[in-house]
Amino acid sequence: MTEFLQLDLAPMLAATLACLACGLLGNLLLLTRQSLLGDAISHAVLPGIVAGFWVSGTRAAAPMVAGAMAAAVGATLLIALVRSRARLEPGAAMGVVFSGFFALGLVLIEVSGAHAVDLDVDCVLYGQLEALIWPAATGPGSLLDPVALAEFPAEAKTLALVLLLILGLLALLWKELRLAAFDPDFARSIGFAPRALSLLVLVMVSVACVAAFWAVGSILVIAALVAPAAIARLLTDAYARQFLLSGAAALAMGAGGYWAAALAPRVLGLDHGLNAAGMMAVTAGLLLVGACLLGRRGPAGRAQRRVAIPVRAPAAAE
């Protein structure tokens, strides 16, 4: 039990919280067909993270979040500039800008000497879940002990805070975000600022990318952003259920992936643990395949709809 608290609780929590925070935001990206923006931002925040880390010298969240937000907004503006000047389609403009930003981040890691401390290329690629340990835990009582809790890895606490922030924003702006996602022109015509809302989503995605950085790195975070929303999208046509299902998928992806990585080596007889962040993405992939097969447009759903068609026919006026 103590071993679980010391070694597994914090990384499992961090993995789950990261998937939840990113997965819920991912719905807004998916429904506005901006999944690739998540891809671009997750790459583009790297130089911001490294610069924030370099300046502050700590893993304290604030400077890195500030750097990442600046990088995300800067990248978005640059994408727009490149699109208009080089007349490129959005995907290509993103490719130009985010690979440049990502390369800059990688070089900054070397130049700044950040790798000597904590931040190295491995963390960018695979995350660093195994570094999140809670040595102060002595037993279940530690969960209520403020002294021991103060030692709880700050990365997990930051993630919890970010998740709360995202849940709060989703609750506060529930109808506004839906309106802006569905019909931005109409939203603008009745005075609900869709551009401000999409900028807010952009900033939140960059915040979530930073918070999730230590857990999953900056490439696998794309899976956390896109997969839960995509899984839910295959299973439902209702807006609220889309968010609930994506939350469930994120939970399964985070916790399930973490445990799969911990348990699989024992089952397979490997003497080396599997990478937890990678396993989370693989779990998401399996869930996605399942959703494809079960979903309304999959083989199962098609059979179901064949029965449903006669009900629809009289309603159709055309």
Binding site: L30, R33, Q34, S35, L36, G38, D39, G91, L125, Y126, I219, L220, V221, I222, A223, L225, V226, A227, A229, A230, R233, A261, L274, N275, A277, G278, M279, M280, A281, V282, A284, G285, L288
Partner: peptide
């Protein structure tokens, strides 16, 4: 766009595992 992001990240995750 979603499909590309999914393939990119999930296959990379598989590779990492």
């Amino acid at each position: 766009d979603a499909a590309m992001a999914l393939v990119l990240s999930i296959s990379f995750g598989l590779g990492v595992v």
